[in-house]
Design a protein around this nucleic acid. Structure first.
Lengths: 159, 159
DNA sequence: TGAAATATGGATAGATGTGTCGTATTTAAT
DNA sequence: ATTAAATACGACACATCTATCCATATTTCA
């Protein structure tokens, strides 16, 4: 849904927001969020170029939050990393539906819109308020995949 | 949101559903959906192993639909290709929140749930009904990414 | 001024997703 | 039986995502 890297970015933004404007080094951020040190730096650089964090070099330096957690949504942050694009036109050049999408792409685009609205409805502050406990890391629950074709089977696979 | 491959799978399932039980060769499906012939075969094989299509080899053969379009949802089809998994537990072993997720992962999981519900609410038949016009292909509209940190800037980048 | 701490940026490596190719196997028509 | 049409399957190529490593630039402190 969102990339691993985008999720890492969110973890680090939360950690920075919890620091209340104090700088945290990439090393500290890495430890608090369980993102590998080198990769954490890469992501922080992207967040820096997008002006969501500010970096300070040298002893005593680090990264600090450069945005208002109340006005910064998950949508804002995720799209620093992921494209988060919508389906808008049919590039196939099929004249039959210039200007409108076929049912498939209209549906997929509407679904994408729902996802975007969800991400837009959540601010960094929203996450802070219920997140005073240290962050957990995600894990994937495998939804059993039936092999019946009508949704009522029992064979499952792992992927 | 869903992978390119999963979207190809949906295109081909629609084409097969429109064929009303008649077999279509991989070549025909490829042409109708603008998926490259070789890759189309790969995807059709996955759909076949999941029992959503049936393959018939030899002259006069091809692929035909093996499920009821009224009962088959986009969720069913997409997860043949994509994991579509939920965040369920914190594997980090941090004892503080055993059994419950922190705000970040709870939010992301809830967002994932919304997406899954959307896909579950749409059947193959739903797409057919408004899709008698041939399918279009998707294209990505780039959402402008501001570099302000407060969501009110104007500089944009392409990615 | 030197040393230590810190971020920056480029190069590289591994994993996964996307796409192509060649050969084998099955089936139907003749 | 033979042949043509079609799928099955494994190997390979390429791009992108994820992650690591190294050399360099900047800043602070002693």
């Amino acid at each position: 849904m969102i990339s691993t890297t985008a999720e890492y970015a969110l973890r680090m933004m939360i950690a920075l927001a919890e620091a209340n404007g104090d700088p945290l080094t990439s090393e500290q951020l890495s430890r608090r969020t369980d993102v590998s040190p080198d990769y954490a730096v890469k992501i922080l650089q992207q967040l820096g170029r997008a002006k969501y964090v500010r970096a300070q070099r040298g002893r005593g330096g680090g990264f600090r939050l450069a945005c208002d957690p109340r006005q910064t949504t998950l949508f804002d942050l995720v799209r620093v990393i992921d494209p988060l694009s919508r389906i808008s036109t049919c590039p196939l050049g099929r004249k039959e539906h210039e200007g409108r999408l076929c049912a498939l792409h209209a549906s997929l685009d509407r679904t994408t819109g729902v996802l975007h609205d969800e991400l837009r409805s959540l601010t960094l502050q929203d996450l802070l308020e219920t997140s005073r406990a240290p962050m957990c890391s995600p894990c994937d629950e495998v939804v059993p995949l039936t092999f019946e074709g009508n949704g009522r089977g029992d064979r499952t696979i792992r992927r």
